[in-house]
Design a protein around this nucleic acid. Structure first.
Length: 467
DNA sequence: ATGTAC
């Protein structure tokens, strides 16, 4: 047992010597190293339990003092009650999501927030939550899939000119779905984001580069999809005449790269807030004045650009295979944090499953695998922190969907709407989602609908159970 | 959402 073992556990300053002394004493008593490390971790997790006496008492005292000091420094105590925040579609939102938002509105760094009509429970901040913080960023206020985003390409082609069989072949050939999935070396795509020097700025980014390079242009699992469908423009917009167009809509994120960045920095944030109220544990933040906060900000934005690059490759491959021009395209990130002016002050606005909707800003709000999605234009509502929903939102959790929904009824729903599905888990069934029409209706003051997209051929990961 | 773990 040496100092290296101790510092690796995260002990600092005077605690290093005390931990080492205690460890030596335990070694002397014949305790194995693994057991000692476990004991040290237990003292670290709950020093109060070791204050009374024993070999770890001195260490526990020092740790308690260090924790108290760091909590004062970081101002970690929660407000006694949540700051007020606006809610859209309150009758559509489960109590659990409200409770999570209430906790987020009690963080000392929180200045404003809002809840979108597709809100449901997530880790830390609810999905559909918007949170403005002062000079701090919350890794789980952004979410695990950093930079998760949407992209739409409108093609110079009539919707029915693409035959069903060809659409299926194209999607199968040019997209990759599933956890851990990557491209073979010779099939790999390339993009400017892979040539940024940012990857050299942090060890974690360097370590993840190879994974990112292998997975670029892929789509992942869960609710991610790529689908051909019909875009209906009721009036001229997006530089297009009114009418119907063949279009491609995709939902993808930052894959393993973003997930590992998220995991790394939320662990770091939790370690820096050892005494945070347990209710807010997953909302641990990083100050933008700290090295850690700046490192997350850089990594988060790289993951955001990487996620958009994934879409660009998916769309470029399919457009090229189709051999048609792209007439218009729209994209937006819906899991990210932005610097934004709020009431004349620059704040960090986290959108975790929320579409940026500044006045005039275009965005995409999908429904489900067999329900329409919408191209929207933001109205810049201040109380929503210039945001809207990022989809319909779950009505049933993944487990509830798998146990309650019947394959036959899902298949009938798809057939009725003329949707062909490749892959897709029962937990992604349309019946697992809120009615998109209701969700859109509840945010008519946040966005205007520009166009409607009806999916026709959908590819997703297979999930736990196929439909 | 990720892909098998401080």
């Amino acid at each position: 047992m040496n100092g290296k073992h101790i510092t690796k556990l995260g002990f600092e300053r005077k605690a290093i010597g005390l931990a080492l002394a205690a460890a030596k004493a335990r070694e002397g008593a014949g305790v194995e190293r693994g057991a000692i490390l476990y004991e040290l971790k237990s003292v670290q997790a709950d020093p109060a339990a070791y204050l009374a006496g024993g070999v770890y008492a001195e260490l526990a005292t020092e740790l308690s003092e260090q924790n108290a000091l760091s909590e004062i420094k970081k101002g970690a105590a929660l407000l006694p009650s949540p700051l007020p925040y606006a809610v859209w579609g309150a009758d559509l939102i489960e109590p659990g999501a409200r409770a999570q938002m209430d906790v987020a509105m009690r963080l000392p760094i929180t200045r404003a927030g809002a809840l979108m009509p597709d809100a449901h429970v997530g880790y830390g901040l609810p999905i559909g939550g918007v949170l403005a913080a002062e000079n701090a960023v919350i890794p789980y206020g952004v979410g695990v899939d950093i930079g998760c985003s949407m992209r739409l390409s409108v093609f110079a082609m009539q919707p029915d000119a693409l035959k069903l069989e060809e659409a299926k072949i194209l999607l199968l050939k040019h997209t990759r779905f599933g956890a851990g999935v990557a491209f073979d070396k010779r099939e790999r795509g390339d993009h400017a984001v892979l040539h940024e020097t940012t990857w050299d700025d942090q060890p974690i980014l360097g370590h993840l580069f190879e994974k990112a390079a292998a997975q670029i242009g892929s789509s992942g699992s869960g609710n991610h999809f790529a689908e051909f469908g019909t875009l209906t423009l009721g009036a001229a917009d997006l530089g297009l005449e009114a009418g119907e167009y063949l279009a491609l809509l995709s939902h993808s994120g930052s894959r393993g790269f973003g997930a590992q960045v998220a995991g790394h920095f939320t662990n770091l944030a939790e370690r820096l807030h050892p005494n945070i109220d347990p209710a807010a544990k997953k909302l641990a933040w990083l100050s933008l004045d700290s090295e850690e906060g700046q490192a997350y900000w850089q990594a988060m934005n790289l993951a955001g650009r990487y996620a958009l690059a994934n879409h660009e490759l998916i769309h470029a491959r399919l457009a090229r295979a189709l051999g048609v021009n792209v007439l218009a395209s729209v994209h937006n990130s819906h899991n990210l944090a932005w610097k934004q002016q709020v009431d004349g002050q620059e704040l960090i606005v986290h959108r975790k499953g929320a579409t940026p909707a500044a006045a005039g800003q275009l965005g995409l709000i999908p429904g489900s695998m067999a329900d329409p999605g919408f191209v929207v234009r933001g109205r810049g509502h201040a109380d929503a922190l210039e945001s809207a929903s990022h989809g319909a939102g779950r009505q049933l959790g993944r487990k509830a969907a798998a146990s309650k929904l019947v394959k036959k009824e899902v298949a009938a729903y798809l057939k009725e709407r003329g949707v062909t599905l490749m892959g897709g888990g029962i937990d992604e069934a349309p019946q697992a989602y809120k009615r998109i029409e209701d969700v859109i209706a509840h945010q008519s003051d946040l966005v205007d609908v520009v166009a409607q997209f009806m999916p026709r051929v959908v590819r997703m990961d297979s999930g736990s159970e196929d439909i």
